[in-house]
């Protein structure tokens, strides 16, 4: 009822839930060994400790379009290629369709 067999492996949500539960119990146990140094009402509460004045949260939040800047800029060549592929021109959409048709014609026709 619960399980799933793939021939080489299996998946069981109940078993998975038990393991996750035990993992959380262990985590909670480990947390008990720590000690609390957090004091309310002190400077510890502010999110940013330096000499500079603190910015507002709106200014500090990284915007969505900048979030994966590192990833996209390190793969710049790939992304430039992908961007130049998506021209937004309907003629190019049809051209891609014809190109794929031609490739498959050649591959299947030769076979």
């Amino acid at each position: 009822m619960f399980g799933l067999e793939s021939g080489s492996g299996f998946w069981n949500p109940v078993l998975w839930g038990c393991i996750i539960f035990i993992a959380f119990l262990l985590l909670y146990g480990i947390r008990g060994f720590g000690r609390s140094t957090y004091k309310k009402g002190t400077e510890q509460e502010s999110s940013f400790l330096s000499g500079n004045p603190e910015s507002t949260p709106e200014e500090m939040q990284v915007k969505a379009s900048n979030l994966y800047w590192g990833f996209t800029s390190s793969m710049k060549t790939l992304y430039n290629g992908l961007r130049s592929m998506h021209t937004g021109d309907v003629g190019d959409y049809v051209l891609w369709f014809i190109i794929i048709l031609a490739i498959l014609f050649v591959v299947i026709g030769v076979m």
Partner: peptide, 8 residues
């Protein structure tokens, strides 16, 4: 097809 692809 020519008209669709190359005409503006």
């Amino acid at each position: 097809l020519y008209a669709v692809v190359f005409r503006r």
